[in-house]
């Protein structure tokens, strides 16, 4: 059923696909670090090579009861339940930012456990439900 012409085209196509995949794999392995939008506090702790004056993004959970706010700045602890990072920030806070929720902070590291942020982004999870449902779930806990 497959004529010779079709076979040739098929072979050509498959070889192009193969070469493309190889090429993309190569790009992927050289860019691996840049694909990650943020690092976790533990990763920051392990990696030595982070320059203190370059910008960095760290993501994690805002630790419960850790937010201290005065009229000038907000201070809180970002955690991945292994390591913790103290974050200081002044500026606009997204509406969804609160305790025990995900957040991504962007700024400069002072040392491995202290970060001066100049941007905060809130991260939310993939669960969507009406408020009543949430209450039922919480009561069941």
């Amino acid at each position: 059923m497959l004529t010779k012409k079709i076979k040739t085209r098929l072979f050509f196509l498959l070889s192009v696909i193969f070469i493309t995949l190889l090429f993309l794999a190569f790009i992927y392995f050289s860019l691996k670090q840049n694909i990650l939008y943020f690092k976790t506090p533990s990763e920051i702790f392990i990696v030595d090579g982070i320059k203190s004056n370059s910008k960095i993004r760290v993501g994690g959970m805002v630790k419960k009861d850790s937010i201290q706010q005065n009229n000038k700045e907000i201070k809180f602890i970002l955690t991945d339940y292994k390591k913790e990072l103290i974050v200081v920030y002044n500026g606009a806070i997204p509406n969804l930012f609160s305790e025990e929720r995900g957040a991504v902070v962007e700024g400069k590291l002072n040392d491995k456990s202290y970060l001066i942020a100049d941007r905060i982004l809130a991260k939310h999870d993939e669960n969507y439900m009406p408020p009543e449902m949430k209450k039922i779930l919480e009561n069941a806990k």
């Binding site: 997204p94 509406n95 969804l96 930012f97 941007r119 905060i120 982004l121 991260k123 939310h124």
Partner: peptide, 8 residues
Amino acid sequence: PTWGTWWA
């Protein structure tokens, strides 16, 4: 309104 940025 949710993350706090238009684009990332």
